[in-house]
């Protein structure tokens, strides 16, 4: 068999172009994410259950809008947290354990391409989530302000960036089992009490003062501002930016590849 024996062409043909490598990795990671049943539950099923739950119960009554209009932006924020923080964090943690990160960084993909591919996969899954959750919400009567879409989608991307940075920080510094525990626990805590699904004004006073400074609260509140009122609140944007830059820098500094 000669086909496995290299002909050692000189010069070597080299790597595929950077953009193609990143797109390939993005597609590969996206398919891996949506084929993973547990991740699918966290990314789509739970948010949909929460959406329907908030729409059929009086939990959100008296907040100056119909239930589905108040609920949906928070559910979209929950989706960003599911995919970017919990899903991607756990996947990266186990990839690190199994040496996948180290192996891929020896291929032409490299560390930069690997991270770019992960970000791309988070964005691709987020698009699917927005389509599914937005579609179901529309069936339930969701009527977002049209001018809210542009800032809303921008905030979702920014929120996903913040949660990706946080997810990578956790995945790169502790054991994968701990990553699993931490990201799942925070998903529940922040989802329920972090100002994502339940608006801050429905939380205890003490929590209200804190959630505005959390990535969950900032994303949930700002998405409600965007889709309910068509407005953008700059302080929340700043909070999300800070949650992107600080954990991002920390991840760059402390991320352990093996």
């Amino acid at each position: 068999m000669t086909s496995a024996t290299p002909t050692l062409t000189t010069p070597h043909a080299g790597p595929a172009p950077l953009l193609r490598r990143i797109l390939l990795q993005g597609r590969y990671e996206t398919l891996t994410m949506i084929r993973n049943g547990e991740q699918l539950i966290l990314a789509v099923i739970m948010p949909l259950l929460a959406l329907v739950g908030l729409t059929v119960t009086p939990l959100l009554d008296g907040l100056g809008g119909n239930r589905v209009d108040i609920a949906t932006p928070g559910i979209l924020a929950l989706c960003a947290m599911s995919t970017a923080f919990t899903g991607q964090g756990i996947a990266t943690g186990f990839d690190r354990r199994y040496g996948v990160l180290r192996f891929l960084s020896t291929t032409p993909l490299g560390r930069i391409g690997l991270i770019a591919g992960k970000i791309l996969a988070v964005l691709a899954v987020l698009v699917l989530q927005v389509l599914v959750v937005g579609g179901v919400a529309a069936l339930l009567g969701w009527q977002p302000r049209p001018e809210g879409w542009l800032p809303g989608l921008g905030l979702l991307v920014l929120g996903a960036a913040a949660f990706t940075a946080l997810g990578l920080l956790v995945a790169g510094t502790v054991r994968p089992e701990a990553t699993l525990a931490i990201t799942n626990l925070l998903w529940i805590l922040l989802g329920a009490l972090g100002g994502i699904v339940v608006p801050a004004e429905r939380l205890p006073v003490l929590a209200q003062n804190i959630v505005h400074f959390l990535p969950s609260g900032a994303l949930g509140q700002s998405l409600r501002d965007a889709f309910l009122h068509g407005s953008v609140s700059l302080p929340y944007v700043l909070v999300l930016l800070l949650w992107t830059i600080v954990p991002g820098a920390a991840a760059v500094r402390w991320f352990k590849w093996n």
Binding site: S3, T9, G14, L24
Partner: peptide, 12 residues
């Protein structure tokens, strides 16, 4: 896919 000119997959 990460390479410009990889080895034929089938042979390997």
């Amino acid at each position: 896919g990460m390479y410009q000119s990889p080895l034929p997959l089938d042979g390997l």
